Simulated scan of single mutants.
Amino acid sequence: MDNEKIGKIIDIQRYTVHDGPGIRTGVFLKGCPLRCLWCHSPESQALEDEIAWFEIKCIGLANCGRCLQVCPTGALTKGPKIFSKFEKKEIQVIDFNRNKCNKCGLCTQVCPSKALYLTGKDISVDEIMEIIEKDRLFYRCSNGGVTVSGGEPMVQYKFVKELLKECKSRRLHVCLDTSGYAKWEHYKEVLEFVDLFLYDLKHMDTLQSKRLIGEPNELILENACNLAKAGAAMQIRIPIIPGYNDSEENIRATGQFCSSLGSAVKLVQILPYHRLGSGKYDRLGKKYYLEDLKPPGKEHMNLCKDIIESYGLKVIIG
C-alpha cells in the first residue's frame, strides 16, 4: 500500500459542530511542531505513539496484572494502593517508569479496561473514507463536511493531501484546521482541495509567540498573507488566554491583521480558554503549566469581540 495514503491519527469524531459549518466528521492527526502552554490535546503533539496511563480505569493487579507479565523492559512494576470508585474497594495498581518504557505497546494490547492505551493509530485513507461516507446524509442536510485537524495536520502533509483529494473527488466540503506553522510549499500542495482554512492566530508579537507556543510567529503570519493572496477562504480562530494574549493591545493588533487579509477572512472565531484537556497531561507523564488559570468571563469575551468587530470583521464567540 502507498505509504502516502497511510497516516497516524489520534481520533475520528463524528457529528461535530464546532470545527466548520454544519455537521462534520473531524479527523485528528498526530504531530505538532508547536507547544502551546494551553494545548488541550497533548496526546497530539508527538508524531510517534505514546502510552497513556489512566489510573482510575485500572481494575487492580489482583484481578488482572497482565501488563506486568508482558512488559519486556521492567517499566511496569507493582505500585501503590488506591481506592477504586469502580471496584468500590482498595486495589493495587501499577507504577509506570517511563524512562524504561520502549513504547512497544504490548501492555495496551492486554489491558482489559484500557487503563493503558496507545495515543496513536495508523490508518489508511480508504479506512477513513469508509467512516466519512456513513454520514454523507448529515453533511448534505446541514451543509457540513469533513474537517482535518490535529495536532498540526501539515506535519503529515503528504497524507493530508491524499485524504483531502479523496474527499474533494466525492464532492465533500473540506476544512483544514491549521496553526499556520508549516512550509508554504506544503500549503500550496493542498490549496486546491480545501474549501475553508480554520486558521489559528495565538499572538501578534513574535517574542511572546516564542514564549507561549515555542516558535516565533513570522511564518504563521506570512502563510496567512499567502493564503489570502492565493484566494483561500479563511476562518480565523483566536484562543483567548487570560494574562497571556488577551491584552487590548494584542487583540487590536490581531483585529487589524485579520482586516488586512481582506475578503479572504469570512469569519473570526474567538475561543475562551478552558481546562478540559488538563487531565491528559498526567496520563502521559507530562506537566500542565496553567493549572491555576481561570477561563475568561463573559464580559471580557464580549469586549474582545467588540474590539475585533471594530475592524469591520464578523466575529463569533466559541
Rank of each mutant, 00 (worst) to 15 (best):
C258M: 04
N250H: 12
G277P: 04
K286G: 02
L261K: 13
S247E: 04
Y289R: 15
D246K: 05
V265L: 02
Y273V: 05
F257D: 14
Y244E: 07
Q256Y: 10
R283G: 02
S247Y: 07
G277T: 02
K286N: 06
S278K: 15
K286R: 14
L267A: 11
V265T: 04
Q269Y: 09
F257G: 12
I251D: 03
E291I: 01
G262C: 05
H274C: 12
K286W: 10
R252F: 05
K287S: 07
I241K: 00
R252K: 15
R283A: 03
N250M: 11
S259V: 03
D246E: 08
D292M: 09
H274A: 12
P272F: 07
S247G: 08
G243Y: 02
N250F: 14
E291A: 08
D282E: 11
H274T: 09
N250E: 13
P242R: 01
L267N: 15
Y273H: 00
A264W: 06
S247M: 06
K266H: 03
R252Q: 12
E291P: 05
G243S: 03
L261D: 13
G285H: 01
N250K: 13
Y281C: 04
T254F: 14
R252V: 07
I240F: 02
D282L: 08
A264R: 06
S263P: 04
S247R: 05
H274N: 08
F257S: 13
Y281P: 04
L276K: 09
G285T: 00
Y289H: 14
C258V: 05
I240L: 03
L271M: 14
E249G: 05
N245P: 12
G279P: 03
L271S: 07
G255N: 11
G285A: 03
Y273M: 02
Y244F: 15
I251L: 14
N245Q: 03
K287D: 07
Y244M: 13
K287Y: 09
T254K: 15
K266L: 03
R283D: 01
L276V: 13
L284H: 02
L261T: 11
N250T: 12
G262A: 04
Q269V: 08
Q269D: 15
K286H: 13
L284I: 01
K266M: 04
Y281V: 03
G279F: 05
I240W: 00
